[in-house]
Design a protein around this nucleic acid. Structure first.
Length: 360
DNA sequence: TAATCGTGGTT
DNA sequence: TAACCAAGATT
């Protein structure tokens, strides 16, 4: 592919721009600590800077080092991750920290192969950490770099196709300057985030406009659509909000696999359609009682609400009930009653946290 | 290869 | 409202 072999020479234009206009104030740019830099990369996976920013400081305070994270209970890690989404990242980060302590002497492994063997560390994350923490010449290909290079090289087709994926990695490696990979990686990410945005790219102010094949095109603003993903399937559930006489709320720990893995949530009864018919509520209560071994008394059924996940949309209603028997007391049970204040310290999914915060 | 895995902001 | 998108990795 002649196109992919041709150097665009982005670095010499990008680096001066970065010095003047880069987001140097970001907290993970104030350190060369391998733990902090790895943490930032994991927090930022599929997550915008604005969203991850407050989590970074809180997480570092709670777990300042590999050792602190490795020895922490998973529940404490998930609690810090609560609300950020893609919770497999938290579980993987916890295991990765344990591997770093036990197998790598408490230091991020300094080779691509060893780094990518850590759970939750793929090629781009590994490269980013090795470049930033150790100054290695490693090319990244995150969403920003992918978009910038796709446009600059004038690629066509789907950006995530395997063919374009190979081309983009080859271009990324060719454009990454020896001895300045860290700054270049930051620079191309800043360019993508600030100027070369997915929508409404600011081409007139772009420092690499002269090397960009897409800038001259009338449709430079458009990127090929991801394969027209069919509409999100809709799922339905009834969530049980049961409280005992002391106001404690019944929560259930979700299995590690699947959505909200490892988090504490309300007991959920999945259904084929939303329960708006009051005649069905009694059945729900019976099914809960049977499944959980509790005596429940219905109080009210809340309005239908919707929560959108990455690949499906959930319609749910909250069934408020009083809990007569405090039957689920044994430790190790995934079903426990919690004081409201204690519950809010757990790893909760966002909609569940919002719901509990509105109680009392 | 194609699904799976969250959430909040923007359009 | 609904679609799109984000410092991707895993199976």
């Amino acid at each position: 592919m002649a196109l992919a072999e041709e150097r665009l020479g982005l670095a010499q234009l990008l680096l001066p721009w970065y010095r003047d206009h880069g987001r140097h104030e970001l907290p993970w740019r104030q350190t060369r600590d391998d733990y902090a830099l790895w943490l930032a990369e994991v927090l930022l996976q599929q997550t915008q800077v604005r969203t991850a920013l407050p989590y970074y400081g809180r997480f570092l305070s709670a777990f300042p080092s590999w050792q602190d994270l490795a020895s922490a209970p998973l529940d404490a890690v998930l609690a810090q991750w609560s609300g950020l989404g893609y919770y497999a990242r938290a579980r993987n980060a916890h295991r990765a920290a344990q591997m770093v302590v036990q197998e790598h002497g408490g230091r991020f492994p300094p080779t691509m192969a060893a780094a990518m063997a850590l759970p939750g560390v793929g090629r781009s994350t590994a490269a980013a950490v090795l470049a930033s923490a150790y100054g290695q010449d490693q090319a990244i290909l995150d969403a920003n770099a992918r978009r910038v290079l796709f446009r600059a090289a004038g690629l066509v087709g789907e950006p995530r196709s395997s063919t374009n994926d190979r081309k983009l990695w080859r271009i990324a490696e060719a454009e990454t300057p020896a001895g300045a990979a860290h700054d270049y990686n930051q620079a191309i990410q800043d360019l993508g985030a600030v100027l070369c945005r997915a929508a409404r790219p600011d081409c007139p102010n772009c420092p690499v406009q002269s090397r960009c094949r897409a800038a001259a095109l009338p449709k430079r603003r458009e990127l090929p659509r991801e394969g027209d993903r069919s509409a999100r399937p809709r799922r339905y559930a009834t969530l049980l909000l049961a409280r005992d006489d002391g106001g404690r709320v019944l929560l259930q720990r979700r299995p590690e696999r699947g959505i909200w893995g490892g988090l504490w949530s309300l007991p959920s009864l999945d259904d084929e359609q939303i329960l708006v018919d009051s005649s069905l509520r009694a059945q729900v209560l019976e099914r809960y009682a049977a499944a959980v071994g509790l005596v429940l008394h219905e109080q009210s059924l809340g309005p239908v609400q919707r929560h959108t996940f990455s690949h499906f949309s959930l319609e749910y209603a909250v069934l408020h009930a009083s809990l007569r028997v405090q039957a689920v007391a044994d430790k190790g049970s995934p079903l426990l009653c919690w004081d409201l204040a204690a519950a809010l310290q757990l790893g909760l999914p966002s909609p569940i946290r919002r719901l509990l915060e509105q109680l009392d």
